[in-house]
Design a protein around this nucleic acid. Structure first.
Lengths: 222, 222
DNA sequence: AATACTTAGTTGTAATTTGTAACTAATTGA
DNA sequence: TCAATTAGTTACAAATTACAACTAAGTATT
């Protein structure tokens, strides 16, 4: 009745490059689709991975060297059609990082591509990325999720641009600031401002300590 | 590197009994936890199940005889601690049905229990049910999801009671009707009303045909 | 048959929320 | 000193939402 199957974890690592929502791909080392760029992924190790989140963190760390501040289970994809070797199953996570983190990761074969410019990818990775983009778009309307695409410090005008890139539409300045205020996840960095050119400098903000690493919350079951 | 694992599918089959959100459990036939009530579940069959949704439908049909009008992937649970036999992984779905459907299903060992009255269940099934309840609570604020807990025909005052049971709070009559109107998923059953006692009878409504079975939409990829 | 009673459904208005424009503030360079 | 540009605030208009009071439709009672 029961049967053994191979389960993998794939991660949609999203970031912002040139104000565009982008996904991180890796050139594949092994067949099938060897040398082609695809989502970072790997097998679940039942001995060492306490759960799928651990597997996602391990794989992401091994293949990219990145520990993301935000990681959330997206969906599990399974079926006969997604892998030429036959029936397969993948638990997919999506992660958010600032682009500097990807730039700093000196791993070989990393490709960052805007999600709107993607070519045809191996497996069902186009579908998976589309699902991840839909999820972040939707959550950007009411959550602080896009903050994890910003660096450790950012200005409100800068953060607004990030939200606009996620949502694909421009936002009203006052409404945006009201929403961020209600979310209550930001704190001003006292005395710190960001000057750039002949203008009034903007106040710098950062995530409050308790929101800096969403992984801590996840491991505590929230 | 890669290793075989056993993957199961569990289903949180929710319904409304005496205006209370309730879950359907089945007495277990086999160890571990033999004879104890737990979520309906079973092994994924890679040959016959095109994807996990198919597996969920097959298991639900086999164990309860029910084909639910609404079925959605909830989350995948994995880890060492959830099963005494060791590391395990389960793709969990949640389904919604009218209570008449469960009453009509003449399968042995079915137990329907209000989610607020649950005792300690085997495996991590309490956690799983809590996640399902959180999902439906949240979605009830903006979606037509609770409609699938009603029978084929229902009145607006009756549907409001269902929404209130899902949300755990009372709703304003005018606001509720406005929301349902905006959702645009209901149609009046012409000339049909439901009389009950010495009062003005209420108009009967039903889901528009295209929303009657959400499974069709899912299999088309929406 | 008139009326009291109860629930269904609608209408009008108050309260709240959201969106916009116009203002003030702060900085640099001419 | 002032023009230019972006940051941030304030005041108000528009839209949405919540509530209360009303009308409608049925049965039971007198």
């Amino acid at each position: 009745m029961q049967q053994s199957i191979i389960a993998t974890v794939d991660i949609v690592l999203l970031t912002l490059q040139q104000q565009r929502l982008s996904v991180t791909l890796i050139k594949r080392d092994n067949p099938p689709f060897q040398t082609m760029a695809a989502l970072p992924g790997g097998y679940i190790h039942a001995q060492e991975d306490n759960n799928c989140l651990d597997a996602a963190l391990r794989i992401l760390s091994t293949k990219t060297g990145i520990v993301p501040p935000y990681l959330e289970q997206l969906q599990t994809f399974a079926g006969i059609a997604r892998d030429p070797r036959g029936w397969s199953m993948s638990v997919v996570y999506f992660a958010l990082v600032a682009s500097e983190v990807i730039t700093a990761a000196q791993h070989d074969g990393l490709v960052v591509c805007a999600v709107d410019d993607l070519w045809h990818l191996p497996f069902d990775h186009n579908d998976i990325i589309a699902a991840a983009v839909a999820r972040i778009r939707n959550k950007s309307y009411y959550s602080s999720l896009p903050c994890y695409l910003a660096g450790p410090m950012f200005t409100l005008p800068g953060l607004q641009k990030i939200y606009e890139a996620c949502l694909g539409e421009s936002l009203n300045k006052v409404s945006f600031r009201r929403k961020m205020d209600e979310l209550n996840v930001l704190e001003p960095v006292s005395g710190q401002t960001e000057a750039h050119g002949a203008h009034r400098p903007a106040q710098l903000y950062r995530l409050k300590a308790q929101f800096k690493n969403q992984l801590q919350l996840l491991s505590r079951g929230l």
